[in-house]
Design a protein around this nucleic acid. Structure first.
Lengths: 230, 230
DNA sequence: GAGTGGTCTAGACCACGGT
DNA sequence: CCGTGGTCTAGACCACTCA
């Protein structure tokens, strides 16, 4: 047999837990015990068990030992795909059309979401994203000109606003909110659907060190699904 | 100053990357170099950098070194909350009412999603979930009686079907799909909304070692939002 | 107080993948 | 080839927390 790695031990223990070797909430062996069983050092077991804790499979407490999570918490990890990748990944050609690009003072709701002072001006964009020439998503976006002043003169011909921001302000954190909304007049026109149609909606606000970067609302055309695994 | 831990180093390097110290795709120092800089051992830096790789901030290759991700991939990790927790977490009282519970042969679509043979019988449930006596979500669920035969006689008075399954078949994997749908007749009646109202919808199929456990469709009442961070 | 996990270290060897 | 990351080890010390 090949030498035990922290990954193989992690898998093995995970399998034993899933198979029900220990009940929910039950104490499982300690690091030293596992180390003997798998003939490896305690550090190796430690890594494996820490990983299982991050996965949400076990809980660990000093002195309390390691136990199977009493209440499993299904958790998902997934990428928020770029529209371009979503479209091209499905084998279609991607295009986008900017319908509005101007400077505006955002409404109170948006000011609130972006934590802006009154009177701050933002770039405002409305963009229609197309898959094989057909409407795929309709986007309303506000960009904080104080956080990203270069955006005003950004060339959005090759890169979409989202892509431009990803390159310029990478790894920013964000708050995302998914919901379902009835199509309003503009969205229904842009997407060529009836008013009131059920649209999958993603709202996102991203932050760079406490300052808002952009607030975007994305209405997906009917039929869109966001898939992932848990 | 206190001794450098892998967590503090991870934070520090992440901060330097976010601040733009290196360009997208650029090579960052190697483990030994960081180890000298932070006066710690290489293992400690290794742990920090591996964590940043899992976060999606850097890419690592043997001999190639570690570089900032060329294209940041925004990724989210979130718990799929239990309905009870969603409701009680918002300060409301949770109740559920089972409207239908019977055995049925699922339709072709469901058979397909659950990878069932023709003629297999399943438990079928329709449940209304309430927050402060008001409709919160409407659930249609199929349970594979071959994978979980005990479900037929499960007491669902105290535990919801979802909770019962979580306890009985913990840590199973699942495919989730989010979408927006117009309320059909049953959903609109159950949730007391107009037909055609936009409903946030979660479809989920869970698996235990290659066999389907349950397929569930959850229609949330209007106004529901699924929030998380990236 | 004692047992458990959390972490660091120094050294070692291996595996991959550019040169 | 040889530099980089990937991993293991043995030992050590600390921090938490339960009894």
């Amino acid at each position: 047999m090949t030498r035990a790695t922290h990954q193989s031990i992690r898998k093995a223990i995970r399998q034993r837990i899933v198979a029900g070797e220990w009940k929910l909430g039950e104490l499982i062996p300690g690091e030293v015990e596992f180390a003997e069983e798998y003939s490896c050092s305690r550090s190796t077991v430690n890594r494996a068990l820490q990983a299982l804790a991050e996965e949400g499979i076990v809980e660990r407490k000093r002195k309390g030992g390691t136990r199977v999570r009493p209440l499993p918490m299904p958790q998902a990890q997934f990428r928020i795909p770029l529209l371009r990748e979503q479209v091209e990944g499905a084998g279609h050609s991607y295009q986008s059309r900017i319908r509005v690009r101007e400077e505006r003072s955002p409404s109170g709701v948006i000011r609130d979401r972006m934590k802006l002072e009154t009177g701050v001006r933002c770039s405002y964009l409305e963009t229609l994203h197309l898959a094989d020439q057909r409407p795929f998503a309709f986007e309303r976006r506000w960009v904080n000109n104080e956080t990203v002043p270069e955006f005003r003169t950004a060339d959005l011909a090759k890169l979409s606003a989202n892509e431009w921001l990803l390159m310029t302000v990478p790894f920013s954190r964000g708050d995302v909110s998914l919901s379902a909304n009835a199509a309003d007049r503009e969205a229904s026109e842009a997407l060529a659907v009836e008013r009131g149609a059920a649209l999958f909606t993603m709202d996102r606000v991203t932050w760079l060190q406490g300052r808002s970067v952009t607030a975007v609302t994305l209405f997906y055309a009917p039929g869109f699904r966001l898939d992932f695994e848990i």
